[in-house]
Design a protein around this nucleic acid. Sequence first.
RNA 1: GGGUCGUUAGCUCAGUCGGUAGAGCACCGGGCUUUUAACCCGUUGGUCCUGGGUUCGAGCCCCAGACGGCCCA
Length: 590
Amino acid sequence: MPERALPAPEPGSSLQAVARQALRTRTRQAPRRTAGHRGCQGGHRLGQPDPLLRPRPVTGQGSAHRRGALRPRQRAGRGSGRVHGSKPEGRRMSDDSRNEAEQRRRKLGELRRRGEAYPNTFRREDLAVDLASAYGDMSKEALAEAGVEATVAGRVMLRRVMGKASFITLEDSSGRIQCYVRRDDVGEDAYADFRNLWDLGDIAGVRGTLMKTNTGELTVHARKVGLLVKSLKPLPEKHHGLADRELRYRQRHLDLIVNEESRQVFRTRARLVTAMRRFFDERGYLEVETPMMHPIPGGAAARPFVTHHNALDTDLYLRVAPELYLKRLVVGGFERVYEINRCFRNEGLSSRHNPEFTTVEFYQAFADYVDLMDLTEELLRELLRDIVGGTTLTFEGREIDFGPAIPRRRMTNAVATETGIAEDDLMSEARLGEVARGMNIPVEPGWGWGRLLLEIFEARVEANLIAPTFITHYPVEVSPLARKNAEYPRLTDRFELFVAGREIANGFSELNDPVEQAERFARQSELKDRGDLEAMHYDNDFLGALEHGMPPTAGEGIGVDRLTMLLTDSSTIRDVVLFPQLRGTGGDES
RNA sequence: GGGUCGUUAGCUCAGUCGGUAGAGCACCGGGCUUUUAACCCGUUGGUCCUGGGUUCGAGCCCCAGACGGCCCA
């Protein structure tokens, strides 16, 4: 919605504009259809014959007339604001003349009167980065000799007006390119428009020949210029950019326009996801999509969001994890599946937690958790090679090396090492309770040995696991879906991967014994009845699937956001999620 | 949830002891035909986050709240 009404156009020129527009639309669209450009949806379409500046096809008397009508008006407006103050247009303009947004609307109004406000007839042919790589190394003389044509378009990021000649810097999706706009080359009228109607932040198209400036910068020497989109709001300060973190999250579009580093983060994220897909596709995993809305939330210990289906008159839960559905698929015979998608957890926000976040979960029949640790190492090395081009990355000032084999340590061993308590002592529930209380961990009555161990681990060990480390053998009590370890019945064949003190991955040999799974669910139900909001539901439907027989399977989930954080050296998840959840600012409720 | 820091022009930020609210960029006017965050000259622009309170007087002090950053849980 526009923030306020646009100034009313003059009736006469408005009708002209409409007529011109209609004519243009008709004449343009017919040849375009027959030319068959529909499938070509890329950022820049090639091969439009002389597409430039269709907004002004009537170059003869029409445009001269229009401009003739405009220029005196502008002068009268400014002048009268001060000197006469009596002409109505003059008054309006002087009222607005100090407000940048109003200035921009005034300029848009002028474009609208001419029917040139938001054209979509310009076809870019060249991206900045392509020009730079093809011609950036040529000498000034060679380039002048070659007479290379270029047609570029992008947002006006910098502008240097020197009387009758100017430089502007356009930014497109690939990067920046400078353009040289000279009155004697583009014509007096076009140059006047360029000076009077263009602002930083507008989107413009430029056609001309490539040149090198005296200082060696590759530049499009403009022959034609056109304003394609009037931006009604000023850009943030051109040197410092947009620094306010809240504004960057709430107005991500602005952040992306101004901050190259921010754009880079999301490009990296996309490459990460692409590389993951390739990794799993190459290994015969089937990509699937399972429900986001669950009748019973399951697959993780977390509080769900609740919603309501009106036609079915039933509550549904946004999924906290896709696990139980992916396992159904393994039962169904898809022996390798993966899903990259969102999960939702109704918990607090922090630099590591957004209520919706992305994971890749994958399951492989006839594999165990050790196979998955091997696979995870392979995946991480491949991702690093593709994205950072090596085996090490820098995160929060520390080098993190994924080159060497990632150590695998039992949780009890890690806790013993970190706390100095003998591993044997850690096997006693009573002893663990004392230790936990000694650490000021608020121990709750329902906690058994396993939960105590996990709490101590999280309080004392987790944050110190900077170099990549697998922690293995999680307690059964806190792993209701994982297979029991054959040797130690209190433990499971489960691991989590920690990097930079953060949990990155969680995997285990799956519990595929439906009878034991039923017992585990029953135990979770008891906890839920005692008030544990994160305990799992008893999922009879899932048990029914297990009863048909799930092959021995291992499964794992990896946090895509957290991995992106590592790869982009971002210390908060909000920097790697395009539109992170923030508290509302009040809005329309009281 | 607790602690702590912050919120001033469109943006980036100053603001002394409580005494007329500032700079740079952007915008507006003027100059400038190879500039580089162009430059030079002249203007304009404020709900000092909100609401109370103290005071002759509050951007500044006190209280409450909103939003955000960081730390802790």
